[in-house]
Simulated scan of single mutants.
Amino acid sequence: MTEFEPPPRPTNLNNELAKERNRAAAERTLMAWIRTCLALIGFGFGIDRVVTVLDAGTGDNHIEPLLLSRFLGLAFIALGTIALLAASLDHRRELKRIRRDDYLYTPRTSQALSVAVILAFLGVVAFFGIVLGALLD
């Protein structure tokens, strides 16, 4: 066998190509999660920086809307970080499943739905915090 000899042909080329398509799809999915999580982390960081500047400008550390905004900023950062870790673990698990020869579809909980529910909860908290802050002023 020489150095330039091609590798042996797989026994079932269709299966190998399907595995490659699934692997590429898993890579695209991970990249989409990375973009989404980066946006969440960046948005949370931006909220926290704006609140810090506003808080430093007033000199009063007990303003409720600023505390709510800081909480929301940190919640976005935490959600982005946790979602990124979950997406990375899911990607690794998916690649292991593709490498196996007994690959079978198994339904799983949607990570996107979980993130959407948490974002909806944070939106409701922000909405009521703003409404209550406006009513109390």
Rank of each mutant, 00 (worst) to 15 (best):
F4D: 12
P6D: 08
P7C: 02
P7K: 03
N12M: 05
N12I: 09
N15H: 05
N15L: 14
A18Y: 04
A18E: 15
A18L: 11
A18M: 14
K19D: 05
K19R: 14
R21A: 11
R23P: 01
A24K: 07
E27G: 08
T29R: 10
T29P: 00
T29Q: 06
L30Q: 03
W33V: 00
I34P: 00
R35F: 10
R35L: 10
T36Q: 04
C37Q: 03
C37T: 11
L38R: 02
A39L: 15
A39W: 05
A39N: 08
L40F: 10
L40I: 04
G44V: 02
F45G: 14
R49P: 00
V50H: 03
V50M: 06
V50P: 00
T52K: 15
T52R: 13
L54F: 06
A56K: 06
A56V: 00
A56T: 05
G57L: 14
G57F: 10
G59R: 01
D60L: 08
N61H: 11
N61Q: 12
N61I: 05
E64A: 12
P65W: 10
L66D: 01
L66N: 00
L67Y: 04
L68F: 05
R70N: 15
F71T: 12
F71R: 03
F71H: 06
F71V: 06
L72S: 01
A75M: 10
F76V: 01
I77C: 03
I77G: 01
A78Y: 06
A78M: 03
G80D: 06
G80N: 07
I82Q: 09
A83V: 01
L84S: 01
L85R: 03
L85A: 14
A87P: 02
L89G: 08
D90M: 11
K96V: 04
K96D: 12
R97E: 04
R97L: 07
D102R: 12
Y103N: 14
Y103F: 15
L104Q: 15
Y105D: 05
Y105H: 12
T106K: 13
T106D: 12
T106R: 14
P107F: 05
R108K: 15
T109M: 15
T109E: 14
T109I: 15
S110N: 13
A112T: 13
A112M: 12
S114T: 13
V115S: 00
A116P: 01
A116S: 14
V117G: 02
F121R: 04
L122S: 03
L122M: 08
L122N: 04
V124S: 06
F127I: 10
G129R: 01
L135D: 04
L135G: 04
L136R: 14
D137M: 12
D137Q: 13
